[in-house]
Design a protein around this nucleic acid. Sequence first.
DNA 1: AACACCCCCTGTCGGC
DNA 2: TGCCGACAGGGGGTGT
Length: 289
Amino acid sequence: MPELPEVETVRRGLAPVMEGRRIDAVALARGDLRFPFPERFAERLTGRRVDTLGRRAKYLVGALDDGASLVMHLGMSGSFRVEGDDPVGTFHYARGKLAAHDHVAFTLGDRRIIYNDPRRFGFMTLVPAGELDAHPYFASLGMEPVPGSLTADRLAEALRGKATPLKAALLDQTIIAGLGNIYVCEALWRARLSPRRLAGSIVRKDGTAGDRVSRLVSSILAVIAEAVAAGGSSLRDYVAADGSLGMFQHTFAVYDREGDPCQRNTCSGVVKRIVQSGRSTFFCPVCQR
DNA sequence: AACACCCCCTGTCGGC
DNA sequence: TGCCGACAGGGGGTGT
């Protein structure tokens, strides 16, 4: 479910509940999510203090006081909620029993952080001190779609000569890390680029960025920044850790808008849905070239 | 090496 | 109303 803006929204919600606090207990409702939990997962976490809760691509990374990292991925349907006796800030506290698809409960003082994931495509693991950057999940991740990391020159270099459709290249986490199906569709619409065009074809012949790459970079940076500012997108039952709903879905130009008129002022096109590498792509075949 | 496909799992929704 | 297929925000593994 969650792409970078949703994961970042979750991070911002959980950080004040986790940072600087000790994990007093970890309860697992089952031995695996997408993958088995690592050996002694609960024991290794218990008693550790979470110094910071960070994010890389779509991963949440808790930096523990022994140098290890708690790595969490929400997959398609993962979410967190916070329960406790001591209402603070905007959190909605309601202590209760574990519900269906609650798989992990972290107790930190008077709070409980509960991970729920119906499809169990999410996963958690512990990475020993000093091994995070070299870990398989992280070693090959590409640029973060933020200013200073994602630049036109770097994207041009990464896409040059690539024969895969542009849509697939943008979903490739080893090129840009954190984009998913929604924001790729939206960014391509903003950049007026066809998802079917070969990725290498937007790069100039001499390998420099040029107008198309520049437009794409601006579009990606803008759509991600706007989505983060809006608290991400809420589809189906997705909510942030504080129970609030992200609002960005109301501004989708093409995602899940098959048949709607293209929102570009001068365009008479209609949003079309196609399937690329097994996933839906929404775009305007008239203005996206 | 680089791609394209299939699969993991559960819930929801639309069509009949 | 009920059933059934299609589809869903991700990404890892396999086969070409």
